[in-house]
Design a protein around this nucleic acid. Structure first.
Lengths: 111, 111
DNA sequence: TTGACATATTCCGATATAGGAATATATAGT
DNA sequence: ACTATATATTCCTATATCGGAATATGTCAA
């Protein structure tokens, strides 16, 4: 049995880094396919295919404007993801988070 | 080019439903492999393999106790996921369940 | 209609996958 | 040393994938 399809649910859809980038880019305002390809430096067919995946799971919406097709992130579809991960919040430890905070500020290594 | 490996990062690791179930089961307390297999009704080899994936990305920790091997969720590893999805919060619309929003704000506390 | 532009789809190939069975490894008790 | 228990690993196979090239579809404008 292979992996679940990328378009089977939100979890699988956002597993791909490029698709997350697309979602970030389309979060604030709608954009045409070509703009996404240019900005994120991806091939147009690749962008189109990623958009179909995101569309299938409801992470983006489409609108046609002449010959351009405008996509936009539907952030609400990310809420299940946020809620699922948030259900573990009660098990988060301050100690580790503090280490992480420091690590973010500095790119140093120690051991 | 195939999909990114399941053990390449947290996003890919949690894309599999079974692995999410395991994480939920191991969140509160450590459990032996056999217990996980029994409780979640999965084959033992399957569980072991899923645990290796989770271990690789830091989502679980291991401890040996005699002939048993105890695993436990390291919830901190889920924070990047939570933070990424949370970065879209400003685009959420108040159309759906407002109830869960409140529930989540209450969830985070430390001892 | 023809041509230019914008996007979607098809075809291709290499690769990681999930589960089950069989097997290997490790630990404990006698 | 032998046996039972617990877990990890190997072998197997069908399948979805991602990207790029080529192509199809769709839309506007003259």
């Amino acid at each position: 049995m292979p992996r679940a399809a990328t378009h089977s649910d939100v979890f699988n859809a956002v597993a791909e880094p490029r698709r997350r980038h697309i979602l970030e880019y389309l979060a604030a305002e709608e954009r045409a396919v070509g703009d996404i390809a240019d900005e994120l430096e991806m091939g147009q067919p690749s962008v189109s295919k990623h958009l179909q995946v995101l569309l299938t799971v409801g992470l983006v919406t489409v609108r046609r404007d002449g010959r351009r097709t405008l996509y936009r992130t539907d952030a609400n579809a990310l809420r299940p993801l946020h809620e699922w991960s948030g259900s573990f919040a009660r098990y988060w430890r301050r100690t580790l988070s503090r280490i992480k905070e420091h690590a973010e500020h500095r790119a140093s290594s120690d051991e």
